[in-house]
Nucleic acid binder design. Structure first.
Length: 285
DNA sequence: TGCGTTGTTTCACC
DNA sequence: CGGTGAAACAACGC
């Protein structure tokens, strides 16, 4: 389930695979994935060259020459698979299709072929993702319209964000999921941030102490960095397969906490499945 | 088979 | 109008 680390991994793979390359063929098997696209057809990208591969929040930004840019959101279950001409595969995002299996898979909906031999497969078992093609000159306004907050990977303005936390009554988890507060966290990494911060996820944001607010904000870039370092969290059918004890709580209901061996619990916060350690994150407020 | 799944938007309401 | 919580939506696997 692609959050910022999975999308950033996809961005890096695409940059390595297709930057400077020219589109030689496009196969769109599920045209409806171009939802609300200003330009109606990906065919417009034929013979165009990739000039930049960017990302804002969880949105991939593929810039081509001659004023064309493709925005991609992987949503719940999107996957990007880059097949280099060497035969090496770079796969980011959802674990379906199996990275070492056959492509295109039945849930592979769009594929790009490049003159240099690289092939990119976009797959999405849930079909919730979207593609939007537009003039590059319109991208800035399109991204602004999302009203994303600061990138969770970067240096955060702790004073300003802490002040916002102190005024909100919603659960701290719900606030951290709000992309206009901080961009990039999703359900997995929010649970990890709160575990490292020793904070019960349903705690009202305004009930956090000064120290707790700083702790939470401090863990955001660190947790995202660990996700990126791993190329995304390994979670299959909602069961975590931790690497270096990460993720520590998300997808580990019924399993022992890596720190204290207390059984990890699952609750619902803001109608989202939420994992926490009842000993490390007691509901003290 | 109806429920769970997530990121995001929409809606009713205060 | 803004904050809030819940519902809606996309579609499918189990």
């Amino acid at each position: 389930m692609p959050e910022l680390p999975e999308v950033e991994t996809a961005r890096r793979y695409l940059e390595r695979g297709i930057l400077g390359q020219s589109v030689s063929a496009i196969d769109v098997r599920l045209p409806k994935l171009l939802r609300d696209s200003p330009l109606p057809s990906l065919e417009l990208l034929l013979n165009h060259t990739v000039v930049a591969v960017g990302r804002r929040a969880k949105v991939l930004i593929l810039a081509f020459d001659h004023d064309l840019t493709l925005l991609v959101h992987l949503k719940l279950a999107g996957q990007v698979a880059v097949f280099l001409s060497s035969g090496e595969r770079l796969v980011a995002g959802h674990p379906v299709p199996a990275p070492f299996g056959e492509y295109p898979h039945k849930v592979t909906h769009i594929e790009f072929h490049f003159a240099e031999g690289t092939v990119v497969y976009f797959s999405d078992v849930r079909q919730f993702g979207w593609f939007r093609l537009m003039p590059t000159s319109d991208v800035e306004a399109a991204i602004d319209a999302f009203a994303f907050g600061p990138e969770g990977t970067g240096a955060l303005d702790v004073d300003a964000l802490s002040a916002i936390i102190s005024r909100r009554s919603i659960p701290i988890k719900t606030l951290l999921l709000d992309q206009s507060f901080i961009a990039g966290l999703g359900n997995i990494y929010v649970d990890e941030v709160l575990f490292r911060s020793h904070i019960y996820p349903a705690t009202a944001a305004r009930d956090l102490s000064d120290a707790e607010r700083n702790t939470v904000l401090g863990h955001v870039p660190a947790v995202l960095a660990e996700g990126i370092r791993q190329g995304g969290a390994k979670i299959i059918h909602n069961i975590a397969h931790p690497v270096d004890q990460f993720p520590a709580v998300h997808g580990r209901g019924g399993e022992p906490c890596f720190v204290c061996e207390t059984t990890i619990e699952k609750i619902r916060v803001g109608s989202r499945g939420t994992y926490f350690c009842p000993n490390c994150q007691p509901p003290t407020h």
